[in-house]
């Protein structure tokens, strides 16, 4: 990456990327393009929420309770304010809250995937490279982890964290606890893939050669072995992102998760489902559609990536 000079290589790299098999397959798959566009729109909208959203739903001082339950595109009975997608039970603009909520959901999702990925790849590399009892132990732990219900694990982690974190910091820490809880439940898949590939690669001649020269194992692992497994890891990570976002929503239904004053998409849906029979359909419908669109398109991208990266299917 640092070997070539950027000014010369960039057009080349771009051109090369455009001509690559992956890009070709992408251009030929309308579903993948739509999915990519939809996820990109949602991700960008979430990232730039503070500039796009007409209101700041996370600032309680700007909320007027009397704005609550305003239907979409209709003036509120008390205040006369009109909101594009209506307001929720606290007078929060649903559109703005969705943008800010997607921000939280995506943040939790990305960080959880990152956490699981780093943990899984590290342990997978170690297990595959070292072998022996280290490998046996790690894979045994992975077996246990794989069969243990992930939601249950997250619930338990949340319980522990509550015990350790002093009350004053609990609200601020809730999101990080969530990330660890969800991430911890998903590292095994990365570890398995990376371990398998490492075991195959480590006996190849170029790795043996590097070892003979006296290259540090860490360097061998990172420079030579890791790039070979990035394909499958990317597939797992993409699907893992969708999984993590849904897991966050599920946990919020069980009463653990981010505080209701700073809701994620999942928390919004949990709140909204209370209004399914009462007539305020917009509080449930719009966050649900956003979550569905996001998770569905990320999943579709994962599906497409899996096929595209599988050389035998081309």
């Amino acid at each position: 990456m640092t070997e070539f000079t950027p000014d010369e290589s960039r057009p080349n790299a771009l051109a090369r990327a455009w001509d690559s098999d992956i890009a070709y397959s992408f251009r030929r798959s309308p579903l993948a393009i739509i999915a990519a566009v939809v996820s990109l729109i949602i991700i960008l909208a979430a990232v730039f929420a503070p500039w796009i959203a007409p209101h700041d739903p996370f600032n309680p001082a700007t909320l007027n309770l009397m704005d609550g339950f305003t239907p979409p595109m209709e003036p509120n009975a008390f205040t006369g304010n009109v909101y594009w997608l209506g307001t929720d039970n606290q007078g929060r603009d649903v559109f703005s809250t969705i943008l800010f909520g997607a921000r939280i959901s995506l943040f939790v999702g990305f960080m959880a995937v990152l956490f699981a990925m780093v943990l899984g790849i590290t342990l997978g590399l170690i297990a595959g490279y070292r072998g022996g009892w280290v490998d046996s132990l790690l894979m045994r732990v992975a077996d246990v982890q794989l069969t243990f219900p992930s939601i249950l694990l997250a619930l338990l982690i949340f319980g522990v964290a509550r015990g350790f974190i002093p009350p004053a910091y609990r609200e601020a820490m809730a999101i990080w606890v969530l990330i660890v809880a969800i991430g911890l439940a998903e590292w095994v898949q990365y570890a398995r893939v990376v371990r398998g590939a490492t075991m195959v690669e480590k006996n190849k001649e170029y790795v043996q050669a590097a070892r003979v020269i006296g290259a540090h194992p860490a360097k061998i692992l990172l420079r030579h072995i890791l790039p070979n497994v990035m394909g499958p890891v990317l597939v797992i990570a993409t699907i893992g992102l969708a999984l993590a976002i849904i897991a966050e929503a599920t946990l919020s239904f069980l009463g653990v998760g981010v505080p209701p004053t700073q809701p994620s998409l999942g928390t919004l849906i949990r709140i909204g489902q209370g209004f399914l029979f009462s007539g305020e359909w917009w509080i449930l419908l719009f966050p649900s559609i956003t979550l569905l669109a996001l998770a569905l398109s990320v999943n579709l991208l994962g599906d497409w990536l899996r096929d595209a990266l599988n050389p035998r299917l081309r």
Binding site: P60, L65, N89, Q90, P167, R170, E171, A172, P259, P260
Partner: peptide, 25 residues
Amino acid sequence: DEAICQALVGMLARININVDLNAQT
């Protein structure tokens, strides 16, 4: 209960009392 607490958070924010809400079972 949770929604009442949320509403109070908004009302107290108006007089600069910054409330962190810890709603739990």
